[in-house]
Amino acid sequence: MLPPESSAARSVAGVADDMFAALRGESGVLPRAESVVLVLIDGLGAISLRAHAGHARALTTGMAKKDVAHSVFPSTTAAALTTLLTGVWPGQHGLVGYRVLDPSRGILVNQLTGWEAEGLDPATWQASPTVFERAAAEGRPTFAVGVAAYAGSGFTRATLRGAEFVAAQTPAERVAAAYDLAERHPGSLVYCYLPEADKAGHRYGVDSGHWVAALEEIDAALSRRVPPGVGVLVTSDHGMVDVPAHRQVVLEAEHLEGVALVGGEPRMLHLYLDPDADAEAVSSRLTADLDGLADVGTRRTAIDAGLFGPVVTSAAASRIGDVLVVSRNNHAVYDGTAHDQRNRGMIGQHGGLTPEERQVPLLRFGVFAR
């Protein structure tokens, strides 16, 4: 199991506090701003952005080596986006993966899309205060600009609590709406969500024409003028890697002996064991089976290494797999015994520890620009 970055590395967990400090004029990192806009480009890694700089001139002009941050582990939307919008690590907010165990019921739950169908309460399953609740407590206007389909979802209610949701269709319309809200409401905190690159990457791959077209559309949206007095931070929750078919590693029944449930996602599996299975033994066996393809470790190893953050609550720990399987390079590990194999067709993937997945841009515009 690979170690986390040093505590001195910039992290997406610090973005929330940076925004509040800038609004108060108390930041040692950012200039004071009348209002702040946080733009989240889902799925845009810093390495991929630099590799396609010619298609993203508004984003990359003036981008320095230091204009990056590290995402969390696992490098997946449920975990990382919640960290950005609460300011705490997955070990504290509890969204420790894509599909995880609900220990009270012994079932796997999808923390992006399964809130309603799988009976998760957004207020208790994710109990950490959001940045919007914190801003509202200071009397600040708060807004979240996103896709209309997400307005009432359980994940939205878990991560955007306290914000007034504003729907807009295209990236350009969402950015325009966010900037307008920030200008019309001094002292406000505005969030703007752009999922287009992530969707294109999953379906077609990061080096595809579809992904480049999505990046160009986002870049054009962010080329508009920032209103006076408004500070804009542009970042992402994670990057991704392309997984070709010959890099798909399939675990069959003999590999999964002692495993009751397989959660997570192919780049970072949570394995939940039978009551009588020994985690160290299963970990050792899979380490040999996946030699050179994935890192394997126990829950205790990962927590002790700080992979889920400096604090891991008992609730969060109970959702982490007994054994974790983290794919190396551009491999992905699949449960060959699962009935639903639709994710085998996904090209762009994330969840692991590679720089492509964990290094994200952290760009400054408006009054924040250098």
Score class of each variant (00 low, 15 high):
Ala9Thr: 15
Arg10Trp: 01
Arg10Tyr: 08
Val15Gly: 06
Asp17Trp: 02
Phe20Leu: 05
Ala21Met: 02
Ala22Thr: 08
Arg24Lys: 14
Glu26Thr: 13
Leu44Gly: 01
Ile47Lys: 00
Ala51Thr: 06
His55Val: 03
Ala58Trp: 06
Ala58Arg: 11
Lys66Met: 14
Val72Ile: 13
Ala78Asn: 05
Ala80His: 09
Thr83Gly: 13
Gly87Asp: 09
Trp89Thr: 05
His93Ser: 10
Tyr98Met: 09
Val109Gln: 11
Thr124Trp: 06
Ala137Gly: 14
Phe143Cys: 05
Val145Asn: 04
Val145Tyr: 03
Leu160Ala: 12
Leu160Glu: 11
Ala163Leu: 11
Glu164Met: 08
Ala168Cys: 12
Glu173Trp: 03
Val175Met: 06
Ala177Gly: 04
Tyr179Ala: 02
Cys192Leu: 03
Cys192Trp: 01
Leu194Ala: 07
Lys199Asn: 11
Ala200Asn: 06
Asp207Gly: 14
Val212Gly: 11
Ala214Val: 03
Ile218Gln: 12
Ala221Arg: 10
Ser223Asp: 14
Val230Pro: 00
Gly231Pro: 00
Asp237Met: 07
His238Met: 09
Val243Phe: 10
Pro244Tyr: 13
Arg247Trp: 00
Val249Met: 12
Gly258Arg: 08
Glu265Asn: 11
Tyr272Gln: 14
Ala277Trp: 09
Ala279Pro: 14
Ser284Asn: 05
Leu290Glu: 13
Leu293Cys: 10
Leu293Pro: 10
Val296Asn: 07
Ile303Val: 15
Ala315Leu: 02
Ser318Ala: 15
Ile320Thr: 05
Val325Ser: 07
Asn329Gln: 13
Asn330Gln: 15
Ala332Lys: 00
Asp335Gln: 03
Gly336Thr: 09
Thr337Met: 05
Arg342Tyr: 00
Gly348Leu: 09
Gly348Lys: 08
Leu353Ala: 10
Leu363Thr: 12
Leu363Met: 13
Val367His: 01
